[in-house]
């Protein structure tokens, strides 16, 4: 069944988009991430312009992270104080990202920057995840316990001023790295159409030493607010949010996420991280391929304005 998308201005098969929502939702539920890094490229692939895809996926991620955040809230597994602190910087990051997004679009370089950011970020994060999880898998095979070397291991980050205590996460850290991480996630999310969960979770664990009990819930709150505000900002500045597309994606996404979460719980942590790492890396390579290989058509059109 074809349905006409009012902002993307093209007809799509409603079941295809719903299926994409389900599939990405399944993966996002399985790994506890938003799945924007998969959804945005998929939409571009079916013909939605990168700009509309990035802007519309934001609301899709807001939906899936809200349903996740509610679940973690019920289990008291999120740190509101830390989330608020990250958020104050996240909003600034999102606003900066949306501003840069608009500027790049005017300069005809938006597609390039989206492509390049995907390549660098995804291949780098993918490599790190594969390396880390492979080591954990090997260690587990040799019967050694997984050491997270949590307590007592201080880095230079702990020497910074403006220290704050976050009770629920039981950490005492400087506000500077917290703000930096929040800003980065908001910024990257607005430009790339990703929630940034797959970046935020490892950052919180490795840099701030947030315990695994509160890390996913807290990351979901941050993703929720940055993506909801990215939706509003993209709508106001670029008029590119397609609500019909977003709704179909959301419905598929939240349903898929439920089944994904069940599958994910039956798998072992390090195996799960290895799989996610491979997935992230593969998407990064796909983008690298598109940038390096000679495009089918060297010319492309962009509408500058109707009369």
């Amino acid at each position: 069944m074809q349905i006409y998308l009012p902002i993307a201005d093209l007809p799509v098969n409603i079941f295809l988009v719903l299926g994409m929502g389900l599939a990405v939702g399944f993966i996002s539920g399985m790994f506890g991430i938003g799945g924007g890094f998969l959804m945005t490229p998929l939409l571009i692939f079916i013909g939605v312009t990168p700009a509309v895809a990035v802007a519309s996926v934001a609301s899709h991620i807001a939906a899936s992270s809200f349903s996740g955040a509610i679940n973690y809230w019920r289990k008291r597994a999120l740190d509101i104080a830390l989330a608020l602190m990250l958020l104050s910087a996240g909003i600034v990051g999102t606003a900066t990202g949306v501003w840069l997004f608009t500027k790049l679009r005017e300069l005809d370089q938006l597609d390039l920057v989206i492509g390049l950011s995907y390549v660098t970020l995804l291949t780098a994060v993918g490599c790190l995840m594969i390396y880390e999880s492979l080591r954990a898998v090997i260690r587990a095979r040799h019967g050694m316990p997984a050491t997270l070397r949590r307590p007592g291991s201080h880095t230079w980050l702990h020497g910074l001023p403006f220290k704050l205590r976050f009770k629920r996460s039981k950490i005492y850290v400087s506000a500077i790295p917290v703000w930096a991480i929040g800003f980065l996630i908001g910024f990257v999310g607005a430009i790339m159409g990703i929630g940034g969960g797959f970046l935020l979770v490892p950052m919180l664990i490795y840099f701030l030493r947030v315990p695994t009990a509160t890390v996913i819930g807290t990351s979901m709150v941050l993703t929720l607010v940055t993506m909801a505000s990215a939706t509003v900002m993209h709508a106001v500045t670029n008029h590119l949010v397609d609500a019909v597309l977003a709704l179909i994606l959301m419905v598929g996404g939240v349903i898929g996420a439920q089944f994904g979460a069940r599958t994910g719980q039956r798998m072992r942590g390090e195996r799960l991280r290895l799989l996610l790492g491979l997935l992230v890396f593969a998407v990064g390579l796909r983008f690298a391929y598109a940038l390096v290989v000679r495009p089918e058509d060297l010319y492309s059109l962009r509408n500058v304005g109707f009369e």
Partner: peptide
């Protein structure tokens, strides 16, 4: 409204 729609969808799912 789009952001609100996202929240409602997420809430219904949960």
């Amino acid at each position: 409204l789009t952001a609100l729609m996202a929240l409602v969808t997420g809430w219904i799912a949960s």
